[in-house]
């Protein structure tokens, strides 16, 4: 494997966004790019990352390899990279280590690190292609604000999407709260628009603790997409350039 990223910041942000949710992960490398799928310890949330080969220049992967990496270790090494450093990942066939180099674009500084790899026997889930009943695309900062504000009151949020809009509601010991958003096009700045596409009404309840955690990815993208269907996990997607993405799935809370 040899994969060169123009900006180390991208990988730094991705790892920062997921390291509190998942610890040891396989980075599956093949000629289409670098993918990661991992569940949190409680098997309630799942991270699915895809960094397409087009996000790297150049990208070369001659044989499929799984790089088992501890994200705490990776974070320690990535802290040594400046955001605008050029980052290159390298690994041999059947590797013991992954090699990372950070090159400063404006000086002759080159730093080089090896991280020991681990054997990770991870359960892989098959995620079917789903036609979601509701898809909401909104500013990622708005979604962060909603989850943060509501998490101060309650552990859970009900998300209801109808043709009127989307409503986030919570009930806690001190009282209750809600935030409603309508479809809205911001003509000056499209990134601030709220787009809602709905085929049937949806109402689901989720744990806010996980949603707050997902929002650590907000720095990766101005926009976030929420995909919901009744009685299936929520998909929270942060799109990256070149069709790369960071997705989170969250199992709902089910009424008894």
């Amino acid at each position: 494997l040899e994969a060169r990223l123009e900006q180390a910041a991208m990988l730094k942000r991705v790892v920062d966004a997921i390291k509190d949710l998942v610890q040891d992960c396989n980075f599956d490398c093949n000629d289409s790019g670098i993918a990661l799928q991992a569940m949190d310890n409680s098997h309630v949330a799942l991270v699915s990352m895809m960094l397409k080969s087009e996000s790297f220049s150049p990208f070369r992967c001659d044989r499929n390899i799984a790089l088992g990496i501890n994200l705490t270790s990776l974070t320690k090494v990535l802290r040594a990279a400046q955001g605008d450093d050029i980052l290159t990942l390298k690994a041999e066939d059947a590797p013991d280590v992954v090699n990372l180099t950070f090159e400063s674009p404006e000086s002759d500084r080159l730093s080089e690190y090896d991280i020991k790899l681990m054997d990770i026997d991870q359960e892989h889930l098959g995620i079917p292609d789903t036609e979601y009943a509701a898809t909401i695309t909104l500013p990622s900062s708005e979604f962060s604000r909603i989850t943060r504000d509501l998490s101060a009151l309650s552990e859970s949020v009900a998300i209801e999407c109808t043709k009127e809009g989307v409503k986030f509601t919570c009930t806690g010991d001190i009282g209750n709260g809600s935030v409603s958003l309508r479809q809205h096009t911001n003509v000056e700045n499209d990134a601030k628009s709220v787009d809602i596409s709905l085929t049937e009404p949806v109402a689901l309840t989720f744990s806010l603790k996980y949603l707050v955690n997902f929002c650590k990815a907000a720095g990766l993208s101005d926009r976030v997409r929420l995909c919901l269907s009744n009685e299936v996990p929520l998909l929270v997607e942060y799109g990256l350039s070149n069709n790369s993405y960071l997705r989170f799935y969250l199992a709902p809370k089910i009424g008894d």
């Binding site: 569940m39 309630v44 359960e123 995620i127 744990s207 199992a251």
Partner: peptide, 14 residues
């Protein structure tokens, strides 16, 4: 009250 579901209830383990 509601119960937290697990992902295996929705996605198949490969």
């Amino acid at each position: 009250s509601s119960q937290q579901a697990r992902l295996e209830g929705f996605f198949q383990v490969k």
